[in-house]
Design a protein around this nucleic acid. Structure first.
Lengths: 340, 340
DNA sequence: CATAAAACGGAAAACGTTTTCCATGTATTT
DNA sequence: AAATACATGGAAAACGTTTTCCGTTTTATG
């Protein structure tokens, strides 16, 4: 059972491969109904499927998109990947999932490969890194893509101008801080993701802004930095608890950090939300199943991923900037208490 | 800045494209050191990268692999995907992540696409479905791949013969049941994943076998079936609690189910592990951060994914069967009590 | 009825590689 | 010195499509 080519179909149908191609792609070049039927029948019989490499080569673009993630085992990226791959599937196209393992060099290397594959579009999943050398290199790659008609969409701030579909990270940082303040909290700690990512940076900025807005004092000791993992949140919470500070509420840059913090509080005998209120950003599917269920901001990762694919697949040849901000709202659960 | 082709390199280096190809792939056809240097220099200068579509077309295979998952946002598949994509990256190859959304039809459809893409290998992430029509269709696809030299590896039982890298699901079902029994539990409930997947079926079989081995009575009412989600586990646990049965321990077919059950028990005022012991299979990264931390069987998903890629990339032309069973061990944490 | 236009179909070029085959020159063997 | 082997390089075919170009037949138009 070897591979069937267009030539096999053409031969059996008694037509030229040109005609087969035409019925398959129903171009505007007319084909008689009789011929079309005949060809279709043979295609069915032989179960012919066009070879995508050949198509790509000839058309100099293909129907592959790529999603760059930092860690696909992190439900944050998982949710995003689900949105991307499922939407892509609706278009009948496939997705390269590229996992950088949080290593900027890997990311650059991936772009070389994607370039060679002539992928139709690239979705940048993670927030950009604020490292000068990396940014320059990345921007070069982006330009090369653009110059050759590939589309790129980012799902997080990259620190330079490009099409994006994201949330207002700073505004969301404000939102969660505000939420705690509105419930009487005035001593609010913060666990942040890596400060060299724009996403984490912006969220923390929102926190600072919000404190200022409410004339609450800002204290460096109330901030702990970490990676975006459960373990990181756990360690950061412990660091905060070891400091000579007091807080009744804590904002976490994302859900993973909050889950880790929850564990740390539990170990230290602190009840949530009675002793300390916890709020975070993400609303990943398991936020319902933590103890207590987590009050967190819903980030529509799935929808964002889906939208990015739609943008890539849209046939807008006209130059346009896709600058889309998704709204965020708080999913109220049981990790925040009102102490007013 | 257009695309650079081999011809551009050849022209600039004053050689034929044949020669360029030869230095690039260092074939055994000799090329003088002088020419090689010259060509390499031009390749560097022009930053030439071969076009992969053209390579695929000519060589009739490419360096793409595919991973079929049911739900990439589930950390179970996420961990697997990380193992696959990161290992693939070491070989300089890319991975299509195909998300079926637990829909068998999608899976079949994916295989058509993958066939068209001539992917080098396919990794079946999820356990096979025990549905006759689907199985026949799937097996057809597998045969087509095999007949054309594509490699397929499954990470879970499929219900028919093929290469695999997996764990002993039945044995692991026994393992967790045994663990509870050894600690004095004699009334043990079970939350199972969908019974039409071989994975869930086998694990439950292990439970039944273990009960019999210890002369403990088996009761259908002690079993609840569900999907593999947090929500499913939550609901299943509630169903069990609503039945007129008593149990001091519960085995969960996977971590997600256990997380959901944990939540249900908490809501019902049952303490874990004081009132009910919980054990499951998976040991996903967040098992450390549940309340209480989950005693669960470590399934080396990352390593299994990595191994599958290694098998696919191995150049063994000789016919061989890769039947690899990874050992499973229990990660002891705090969700099981000894009541002896 | 003549003629322009549209319908229909095929031959061949093109996409960018790898690979087969051949040509030439140089070194080695007898 | 002749014969053989090897080193080196290029021309051209091949992979399987899409697309351009052209030719023939039919239909529409005046």
């Amino acid at each position: 059972m070897a591979r069937i080519s267009m030539e096999d179909v053409a031969e059996r149908a008694g037509v030229s491969i040109t005609t087969v191609s035409r019925v398959l792609n129903n171009t505007n070049h007319p084909v008689s109904e009789k011929t079309r039927k005949k060809v279709m029948k043979v295609i069915q019989e032989l179960d012919y499927k066009p070879d995508i490499s050949a198509q790509s080569l000839r058309q100099s673009f293909n129907n592959i998109i790529a999603l760059i993630t930092r860690d696909i085992s992190d439900p944050y990226f998982g949710e995003m990947a689900r949105g991307v791959t499922e939407t892509a599937n609706k278009y009948g196209i496939l997705t390269f999932v590229c996992n950088t393992g949080r290593n900027p060099e890997n990311e650059i290397q991936y772009h070389e490969l994607l370039w060679q594959h002539r992928v139709r579009g690239i979705i940048l999943g993670g927030g950009g890194l604020n490292l000068e050398a990396y940014k320059i290199k990345l921007q070069e790659q982006m330009n090369r893509y653009k110059d050759n008609g590939h589309k790129i969409v980012s799902l997080a701030p990259q620190g330079f101008d490009m099409d994006y579909v994201m949330i207002d990270n700073r505004g969301t940082g404000e939102l969660i801080t505000d939420y705690l303040i509105a419930r009487g909290h005035t001593s609010i700690a913060y666990i942040s993701g890596p400060q060299n990512t724009y996403t984490a940076f912006d969220r923390l900025e929102g926190y600072k802004l919000c404190l200022k807005k409410h004339n609450l004092p800002y204290d460096d000791l109330m901030i702990a930095y970490s990676d975006n993992s459960w373990k990181g949140g756990y360690e950061a919470a412990n660091i905060l608890l070891d400091r000579s500070i007091k807080f009744t509420g804590i904002c976490c840059g994302n859900d993973n950090l909050a889950v880790g913090a929850l564990r740390a509080f539990k170990e230290r005998g602190l009840a949530v939300p009675e002793d300390v209120s916890v709020i975070s950003i993400g609303d990943l599917p398991n936020a319902n199943y933590t103890a207590p269920p987590l009050t967190t901001v819903r980030v529509p990762l799935y929808e964002m991923g889906a939208k990015a694919v739609n943008i890539i697949m849209s046939d807008d040849t006209q130059e346009y900037n896709a600058n889309i901000i998704f709204k965020t709202v708080i999913s109220e659960r049981q990790s925040v208490s009102n102490i007013k």
